[in-house]
């Protein structure tokens, strides 16, 4: 451990998918200069960054969208923050949720269903949707949130209705 106090780093998100790999390399180098990262965690962080940035390029129109890193050893928090409309589901309840502390299934797009746990009216946690013996015909064709859920220790979404900030929050134990 090289640092005792939390370190906060803000990183503007690239707009071109072909810049993502170079971006993730630079982010991980920045992290490595502040804290020791194992090979396994390096892979997990890279997958998470690729998917958060890809999600931003696909869905966010905010030119100031950014990745925020907070190292509070042994906890690493990666946040993707943008200003815009809250996340919408194709079915099920919408934010703000009326009933908290329950699990529901939501469809983000066609062939992209996930289970979420409602934490507060404006916050939910992604749950691991893996099922054994899933047949090919019913396999999803969208894996971004699923990859982040499986690569992280905790993955949540929060919408601030006043500032209109959307935040995807990922936690990893270093």
């Amino acid at each position: 451990m090289k640092q005792i106090t939390p370190i906060k780093i803000g990183l503007k998100i690239p707009k071109n998918p072909d810049d993502i790999q170079e971006y993730t390399k630079e982010v991980i180098e920045t992290l490595s200069s502040n804290v020791t990262i194992t090979e396994d965690n390096r892979r997990r962080i890279k997958l998470i960054l690729v998917e958060l940035v890809t999600n931003s390029i696909k869905h966010s129109e905010d030119p100031n969208a950014e990745i925020r890193l907070t190292i509070n050893h042994p906890q690493l928090t990666i946040e993707k923050v943008d200003v815009g409309l809250q996340i919408k589901f194709r079915s099920a309840e919408q934010i703000p949720f009326e009933e908290v502390n329950k699990t529901i299934k939501v469809d983000f797009t066609k062939l992209n269903s996930l289970n979420i746990k409602i934490i507060s009216p404006y916050r939910f946690k992604f749950l691991d949707a893996y099922r054994e013996n899933m047949d090919i015909e019913h396999l999803p064709e969208h894996f971004g949130f699923y990859i982040i859920t499986r690569a992280s220790d905790n993955f949540e979404y929060h919408h601030n209705p006043w500032s209109k900030e959307n935040t995807f929050i990922v936690n990893i134990k270093l």
Partner: peptide, 20 residues
């Protein structure tokens, strides 16, 4: 290929479904 993302993974699943 050095890296592959979720959208490409989705394309591979779609190809597999097409072949099924």
């Amino acid at each position: 290929v050095e890296y592959l993302d979720s959208s490409f993974l989705g394309a591979l699943v779609a190809i597999l479904k097409k072949l099924l």
